[in-house]
Simulated scan of single mutants.
Amino acid sequence: METKSYVAAILSELDNSSSQLADEQLELLVERIGEAGRVFVAGAGRSGLMMRAFAMRLMHLGLDVYVVGETVTRSLAQGDLLIIGSGSGETKSIVPMAEKARSLGASVAALTLSQATTIGELADIIIQLPGAPKDQLDDESSTIQPMGSLFEQMLLLVCDAVVLRLMEKQSLSGKVMYGNHANLE
Rank of each mutant, 00 (worst) to 15 (best):
residue 1 M to R: 07
residue 1 M to N: 09
residue 2 E to S: 13
residue 2 E to C: 08
residue 4 K to C: 07
residue 5 S to V: 14
residue 5 S to N: 13
residue 8 A to G: 05
residue 13 E to D: 12
residue 15 D to F: 11
residue 18 S to L: 14
residue 20 Q to K: 13
residue 23 D to R: 10
residue 26 L to H: 07
residue 27 E to V: 12
residue 29 L to R: 01
residue 30 V to H: 02
residue 30 V to E: 12
residue 31 E to G: 13
residue 31 E to A: 15
residue 41 V to L: 15
residue 43 G to C: 06
residue 44 A to S: 15
residue 47 S to Q: 06
residue 47 S to E: 09
residue 51 M to E: 05
residue 52 R to A: 14
residue 52 R to C: 10
residue 53 A to T: 08
residue 54 F to D: 05
residue 55 A to D: 04
residue 58 L to V: 08
residue 60 H to D: 04
residue 63 L to P: 00
residue 64 D to Q: 08
residue 64 D to E: 13
residue 68 V to N: 02
residue 68 V to F: 07
residue 69 G to N: 06
residue 76 L to R: 00
residue 78 Q to T: 10
residue 78 Q to I: 08
residue 79 G to E: 03
residue 79 G to S: 06
residue 81 L to G: 03
residue 81 L to K: 00
residue 89 G to A: 08
residue 91 T to H: 01
residue 91 T to S: 13
residue 95 V to Q: 03
residue 97 M to I: 14
residue 97 M to E: 09
residue 99 E to P: 00
residue 103 S to I: 02
residue 103 S to T: 09
residue 104 L to R: 11
residue 104 L to C: 01
residue 105 G to L: 05
residue 107 S to R: 03
residue 108 V to D: 07
residue 112 T to R: 07
residue 112 T to V: 11
residue 114 S to T: 11
residue 119 I to P: 07
residue 124 D to L: 04
residue 124 D to Y: 01
residue 124 D to P: 02
residue 127 I to K: 00
residue 128 Q to D: 04
residue 129 L to K: 02
residue 132 A to W: 01
residue 132 A to I: 03
residue 137 L to E: 11
residue 140 E to K: 12
residue 141 S to E: 13
residue 142 S to W: 09
residue 143 T to H: 03
residue 145 Q to F: 05
residue 147 M to A: 15
residue 147 M to G: 07
residue 155 L to S: 08
residue 159 C to G: 11
residue 160 D to K: 00
residue 162 V to Q: 00
residue 164 L to Y: 02
residue 168 E to V: 03
residue 168 E to F: 03
residue 168 E to G: 02
residue 176 V to M: 06
residue 180 N to V: 00
residue 180 N to T: 00
residue 183 N to F: 05
residue 184 L to K: 00
